[in-house]
Design a protein around this nucleic acid. Structure first.
Length: 173
DNA sequence: AAGTATCCATTTA
DNA sequence: TAAATGGATACTT
């Protein structure tokens, strides 16, 4: 973790056909996205709603639309600004590399490692992927292990399979 | 198809 | 600081 993490301004729900995601916003943009869970399904977030700035509402509108598009296998027309300042330098390099993977494409952990100039750091790349605060938009799910094996996924392998399937990506095992 | 050795940033003790 | 821990890989049975 990082001590100079940007303070969160609001947490808003994003309803989708797959459940209610939770979006965390900082002053810089979307700083976190959480998969639906029993925890946030019932949780009322109405309290924070009235505190959101006009800019925050705008970001949230964009994020909501983008997430719903992404979950239905379409490419989002536009994304809200992402605040990845909470990550270490290494993690930000990895996340940045992930954002360059086009929808429908995949890379291996080694390829990402090579892309950021550390061919042997595949394992560390895996760690950075797991630390990704904004899944889906930062496409950590498009990273497969060597030979297109599935590998792992912090947010649950079911999600990884589902996201890949909706982008028309094929993988083995 | 399993085991083993080595990889590297982060976390935890 | 040192040891443990992952969304790994490549090499060796």
């Amino acid at each position: 973790m990082n001590s100079k993490t940007e303070k969160l301004l609001a947490t808003l729900p994003i309803p989708t056909t797959d459940g209610v995601f939770m979006a965390h916003y900082s002053a810089r943009g979307l700083a976190g996205l959480v998969f639906p869970s029993a925890h946030n399904q019932n949780k009322s977030s109405i309290a924070t709603k009235t505190l959101v700035s006009a800019q925050g509402r705008r970001w949230h509108a964009v994020a909501t639309k983008a997430l719903n598009r992404a979950l239905t296998g379409r490419v989002p027309k536009s994304l809200p600004p992402l605040d990845l300042s909470s990550g270490t330098a290494f993690q930000q390099r990895v996340w940045n590399a992930l954002c360059r993977i086009a929808s429908g494409e995949t890379r291996s952990y080694t390829e990402i490692a090579t892309a950021i100039g550390q061919r042997t750091a595949a394992r560390a790349v895996g760690g950075a992927c797991g630390a990704n605060p904004v899944p889906v938009f930062v496409p950590c799910h498009r990273v497969l292990a060597a030979n297109l094996r599935l590998g792992g996924f912090s947010g649950g392998l079911d999600w990884k399979r589902k996201l890949l399937a909706r982008e028309g990506i094929r993988f083995s095992k």
